[in-house]
Simulated scan of single mutants.
Amino acid sequence: MVHIVNEEQPDFFSKSPQEGLMEALEYYEVKHPQIVYAQAVLETGHFKSDLCLNGNNLFGLYNSKKHRYYTFDHWTESIVAYLNYVQYRYKPPNDYYKFLSDIGYAEDPNYINKLKGIVSRNDKRRSE
């Protein structure tokens, strides 16, 4: 379990997910932040989905026991949930795309290719 032990809130807490997500992923030491960022873009339709806007769920995290999506008080909580429910199973240095595919993260058979496209576009933007 990841616990937030910090008296002072980092800057990203007052930002929207679009503005603060990469900073937050690094703060929480998420592995492969570019890929996880791409997952948030894909899962939320560029941060416009109802689940993102009203439930602060950036990754489409689903509670199979209650048969509904998780909702969070702040979008950063979905990062902690992602770490606790998904990424704890990842074994570095294995291929992260293969990991997501192996655990059946998404039902879309083109999910990994879509993620790779988003990562590639974001990498080009960062290097410009």
Rank of each mutant, 00 (worst) to 15 (best):
Y37F: 15
Y85I: 12
F59E: 14
Y85L: 15
L51Y: 10
Y105G: 03
Y88I: 07
I103T: 07
V80D: 09
L21Q: 03
N84V: 10
L58D: 05
V86M: 01
N54T: 08
Y97I: 05
Y88F: 15
L25N: 05
Y37K: 15
R89L: 12
D73I: 02
L53P: 05
Y37H: 15
H46M: 07
K65P: 00
A106R: 02
F72K: 06
I103E: 08
R89K: 14
N56P: 10
C52E: 02
K31L: 07
I103C: 04
G45F: 02
E26C: 09
V41K: 04
Y27H: 13
M22Y: 14
Q34K: 13
P93I: 01
N63C: 11
V86Y: 00
E29T: 13
T71P: 05
R68A: 07
F47N: 04
K66L: 14
F47E: 03
E43T: 09
A40G: 10
Y69A: 01
W75I: 00
Y85C: 06
D73A: 11
V80R: 11
L83P: 01
K48T: 15
Y28D: 04
N84L: 10
H74T: 07
Y70V: 00
L51G: 08
Y90D: 07
R68H: 12
L100E: 09
Y82W: 13
N94F: 08
D102E: 12
S78R: 01
Y37L: 13
P92K: 08
Y62S: 03
L83D: 00
N56E: 08
H67D: 11
V30A: 06
